[in-house]
C-alpha cells in the first residue's frame, strides 16, 4: 500500500501504510484473543462461574479491539457523537439485559 493517488500532499504519503497497519493490528489482536478464549476452554483451564468472568473479559477486550481498529471508534473530539451513541446504547443494553436476567432468575427462585 505504498503508491497513492494524485492530489495527496506529501505529508499524507504514509497514511495508506498507517491505515493498513491499523487493520493488521486489529486482525492480529482479535486472532490472539480468540485463540486465548478457545484455548482456555479446550485445555480445561476454566470452569463454572470463573469461566464466565474470564471468557466475558476476553470477549469484551476483543469487542473493544474491533471497535477501535476495524470501526475506527476512539476518544477524539470529532468522534464524540458516535461514541455517545455507543455509550447510550451500552446503557440501554445494560438495563435491559441486566434487568431481564435479574428479574427472571429471581422469579425462578420463587417458583
Amino acid at each position: 500500500m505504498t503508491d497513492r493517488p494524485e492530489g495527496i500532499p506529501e505529508s499524507e504519503a504514509d497514511r495508506p501504510a498507517r491505515e493498513f497497519r491499523r487493520y493488521v493490528t486489529g486482525g492480529v489482536l482479535s486472532l490472539a484473543l480468540t485463540l486465548a478464549a478457545f484455548g482456555a476452554v479446550a485445555l480445561r483451564l476454566v470452569a463454572g462461574q470463573g469461566a464466565l468472568v474470564v471468557l466475558g473479559l476476553l470477549a469484551l477486550a476483543q469487542i473493544v479491539v474491533q471497535f477501535r481498529y476495524f470501526l475506527h471508534i476512539d476518544l477524539q473530539k470529532s468522534h464524540r457523537d458516535d461514541l455517545q451513541l455507543i455509550l447510550f446504547t451500552a446503557l440501554i443494553v445494560g438495563l435491559m439485559v441486566g434487568g431481564t436476567i435479574w428479574i427472571l432468575f429471581d422469579q425462578h427462585t420463587r417458583m
Binding site: T34, A37, F38, A40, V41, R44, V46, A47, G48, A51, L52, L55, G56, L58, A59, Q62, I63, Q66, F67, F70
Partner: peptide
C-alpha cells in the same frame, strides 16, 4: 463479527464449561 464474538463466547465456549 462483533455480535459473533458474543455468540461464540456465551453460546459455545461458556456452553462447553458451564
Amino acid at each position: 463479527d462483533i455480535v459473533w464474538i458474543g455468540i461464540f463466547t456465551f453460546v459455545f465456549l461458556y456452553g462447553a464449561v458451564r
